[in-house]
Design a protein around this nucleic acid. Structure first.
Lengths: 170, 170
DNA sequence: CAGTTTATGTCAGCCTTGTTGACTTTCCAA
DNA sequence: TTGGAAAGTCAACAAGGCTGACATAAACTG
């Protein structure tokens, strides 16, 4: 069988897939358009409450790892401390996040969601999960595994570590 | 078999997948971390050249659909004309994009990449395709199909139409 | 104990990229 | 010929990135 496109083909089992530039472009556009859908629902809630995506990200990861330190959050989010601090300050001022001084190391601030913070996180993640759930259902379980496999391969190694850290069993 | 989690399970063929909130959270984080990797390579090139992601998006879709109008591009990108115009102006001024007055409708501007514009587009998309190609290769062809299926399901209907528009045969 | 490093916070200023609102010019179509 | 669509422009603003500089407290190190 002749090769099509400039990048060759990949095969496994009964499936044959040509990685032409056009196939790759489709993947790129899929990421672009899907990310918009991915953020659309929480964005609507955030605008209502006067917050932005940066607040969402902070709240998400504080919820995922309660007691995480500022430095820890910085490395997950990949922004500067000035940028994160601006967001964190409003969250603390608004009573959504509590920054507890560390016990062993008093320089550290351990971040926790308050009840109000948990409520916002719930609202945001529920909206996002709903879309994800529908997408997963419609695509089917095998597609979900493929989705995760490709996304994991697309991550930078450091981000991949962060991603795998957040898994319960492994 | 008892149900686990609050959202039930999905099954198809020999695969069984529980759509617990934690499974969905993993999917959410996968999108978050992967999108960072997805944009990382072109971002480096863009910074060098003094452009941003907005320029990349414009150049990408002008390349995909040469002769597209400003309005068309607006509906694909989902930003205001003022926002797009600022980006487009710099690209025209820098000689990367040509805005040709419409023949049938002279109000319209038909956008084309110049040679310099094509060169930038090539550099950006090559970097992005390389990562996508490696991710596709490592994940395997079945995973790629699943990846695309889930992303397509995640899009808003309007974006989905735009996405499917960009496909050669169907 | 003195000096250095680390964790955090903060001030100031800059950039990109999004927004709204108002207004103009061009020009197609009824 | 006139209404409205397409496009462009000006102004102002906000979110959320960035850099640089500096302050403070705590921990660590010799």
């Amino acid at each position: 069988m002749a090769e099509r496109g400039s990048t060759g083909a990949m095969a496994r089992g009964d499936t044959l897939l040509f990685l032409t530039d056009d196939q790759l472009r489709r993947g790129i556009e899929a990421m672009f358009f899907a990310y918009r859908g991915f953020t659309a629902d929480p964005d609507r809630i955030l605008i209502e409450k006067g917050y932005g995506r940066a607040h969402h990200r902070a709240v998400h990861f504080i919820n995922r790892t309660p007691g995480t330190t500022v430095n820890n959050l910085l490395s997950i989010l990949g922004v500067t401390k000035q940028s994160l601090n601006r967001v964190l300050r409003t969250l603390v001022d608004d009573g959504l996040v509590e920054a507890r001084v560390g016990i062993r190391d008093k320089r550290e601030r351990h971040l926790h969601l308050t009840e109000a913070g948990k409520a916002l996180e719930q609202a945001l993640s529920e909206a996002q999960r709903n879309r994800m759930r529908v997408a997963f259902r419609n695509a089917g379980p095998e597609a979900v595994q493929g989705f995760r496999a490709v996304l994991e391969e697309m991550m930078d190694p450091e981000m991949r570590r962060q991603y795998l850290d957040g898994v319960d069993q492994g």
